[in-house]
Design a protein around this nucleic acid. Structure first.
Lengths: 196, 196
DNA sequence: GTCTATAGGAAGATAGAC
DNA sequence: GTCTATCTTCCTATAGAC
């Protein structure tokens, strides 16, 4: 049962996705969550505490929802692609999380507190991706000379770079998805079943 | 002859690199540039105008300094790599510009004014990179099946992604450089002269 | 063009009742 | 736990002298 705290955190993600961390006004959040500003201070102590908790919340949610991609199971390589493309979908949910995630990254540059949270989430994501790459190799669907760790680091960093360009309007989602898909081919080699 | 305006803009880049766009206080900038706040408002009208001009300034500087990479000329493929690695160097100048550039991107998500500037600079960078990829192909140092535009879009987006991870502390510069170098190999194919 | 001094306002934070 | 009302701080922006 989502208590008030969680409702506030969810509202905070929406506000951050709309206005950025820098643009989050406690009063605006209060309106979005339909509570008083005082309640926010009661639960989160101060603005900085609120931001910290919100970003923890985001990163927890992010590690959660990549699992959803596993649902419509296919071969390991398709799964990897699906895992990565999951971050480049034009739905409210993904857009929200993705923008908020970018804000976490941007804020971490100037706030040591956030670096730890960010680094942990990034590590998890890279590890999961590396596992997926290794699976594809084991299934004979990826070049064995590629180091899974390196490939994963590059592909996930690329997803972040493409997301940023998408959200800042220099790229459409479709183009971003096509580019990402091409990168997987370049990194793993073309699929044996789909030559040229 | 660097006039006061330019001195203020240069100081603004330093302040933004240190505290972010969100963290820039006009008074802090005044101290950094060793002028009064009033002078800043005199030259730039208001805070928004200052930010806009600063980001124009950054993007002009960025398009400028990639040219410097052309100095120690080698073969086209090495040149491409050098062009890209230029953004991942741990010198005050590059770090400053790179962080400020990231801030431009982050701010553009919530400010339409900045999108135009950002999109233009990004386009220029991608075009230059694509040219460089095409040169490498022409010299027989890159897989001809790769589309220069696509490769350039991916490599530059990757550079941005890697920069972000570097600046937010999840990656060392050295690792970022190695990853980038590997991506060039994956995208263009291994160099004919340096197999396996 | 540049400064000192300060007005004015927005946003963060708290007091105190319920 | 939650609200209304309010205080306080910080920061943008300007007035006016030089």
């Amino acid at each position: 049962m989502a208590d008030r705290q969680v409702l506030i955190l969810e509202a905070a993600v929406r506000v951050i996705a709309r206005s950025g961390v820098r643009g989050l006004r406690v009063e605006e959040l209060a309106a979005e969550a339909d509570v008083s500003t005082a309640l926010i201070y009661y639960h989160f102590k101060d603005r900085a505490g609120l931001i910290r908790r919100t970003l923890d919340f985001i990163s927890a949610r992010a590690t959660g929802y990549t699992d959803e991609a596993h649902s419509s199971a296919q071969d390991p390589r398709a799964l990897l692609l699906q895992l990565l493309l999951g971050e480049l979908q034009d739905t409210a949910r993904v857009r929200e999380n993705s923008i908020a995630w970018g804000e976490l990254r941007a804020s971490a540059k100037f706030d040591d507190d956030l670096r730890e949270t960010l680094a942990r989430s990034t590590r998890t994501w890279c590890r999961d991706t590396a596992d997926s790459v290794a699976d594809a190799q084991a299934a004979g669907l990826a070049d064995l000379r590629a180091d899974p760790e390196d490939v994963a680091a590059r592909l996930t960093a690329l997803v972040e770079g493409l997301s940023e360009r998408w959200h800042s309007g220099s790229l459409t989602v479709e183009r971003a998805r096509a580019l990402l898909s091409g990168a997987v081919d370049a990194e793993l080699g073309r699929r044996p079943d789909e030559p040229v």
